[in-house]
């Protein structure tokens, strides 16, 4: 069994031997270092609540809420993740090499979430400042009620993209199945191309041309109650 003290080198935690609680307790005590998590087998709550600049690599598929509430840490999942990946992240970087299930990046305030594959429904729901970059496509109701931050989708978006959006910026390279209430396509100006370039660079998706993206945002018609909009509320 690995010794869980602050490591000078990479510490390996085998979840077929140690518990998720063992892992998370050790990660919460550490202030620095690299961690390698093996045999996750879809376990929930891996590497949640980190608040130090740790580097955590998870080899295999993770369950729900992986890297939730992350601050400062870099968490890379070499596999798929379940519901609520990096939910309420504050800072740091979470990268999923496979696909992420629904509600990836939900309510996240900051940091960078990269999903190299597809993200399912409600990606970036109620996002509050996070940057989310999805290499594949996102499911329906993505960026629902998004308040701040940027969602960049290199593939397609499902139904009702950006429904009831506040101020988050959405960039989609492929087809948008439908826009949600009060979400509209907007002009791509120079600053937006710069946004896209910055996000693609941050995600290391360097072979994609920023000019291929279209921008979507809030029409700001639902901000305040208006009786003429009652059917849209």
């Amino acid at each position: 069994m690995a010794t869980m003290t602050t490591p000078a080198v990479t510490t390996t935690v085998d979840l077929s031997v140690q518990s998720v609680r063992d892992l998370n307790s050790a990660l919460h005590k550490a202030r620095e270092g690299s961690w390698h998590v093996t045999r996750p087998d879809g376990a929930h709550n891996l590497a949640v609540g980190l608040d130090a600049p740790l580097d955590v690599r998870i080899d295999g598929h993770a369950g729900y809420y992986c890297a939730g509430m992350n601050q400062h840490a870099t968490v890379t999942v070499h596999g798929n993740t379940g519901v609520g990946t990096a939910e309420n992240m504050m800072s740091g970087t979470v990268r999923v090499r496979g696909n992420a299930s629904q509600s990836a990046g939900a309510t996240a305030h900051g940091g960078l979430l990269v999903v190299e594959g597809d993200a399912a429904a409600r990606c970036g729901i109620s996002m509050k400042g996070v940057d989310i970059v999805v290499g594949g496509s996102v499911g329906h109701m993505s960026a629902f009620m998004g308040q701040a931050g940027r969602l960049l989708v290199c593939g397609d978006a499902g139904d009702a993209l950006g429904d009831s959006l506040y101020e988050a910026r959405i960039y989609v390279r492929g087809r948008v199945k439908s826009l949600g209430a009060d979400c509209v396509e907007k002009e791509m100006r120079g600053e937006h191309l710069e946004d896209v370039r910055e996000l693609l660079t941050a995600a290391a998706f360097t072979d994609i041309d920023p000019s291929e993206f279209r921008r979507y945002g809030s029409a700001r018609a639902l901000y305040h109650f208006d009786v003429d909009n009652s059917s849209a509320y």
Binding site: D41, G42, G63, N99, Q102
Partner: peptide, 21 residues
């Protein structure tokens, strides 16, 4: 949940996806 499937033989090479609505 995926964890229910994690013990199946050959899961590491399975095609895994979420059904669309």
């Amino acid at each position: 949940e995926y964890r229910c499937l994690a013990g199946l033989p050959g899961i590491e090479n399975a095609r895994i996806f979420e059904p669309e609505p």
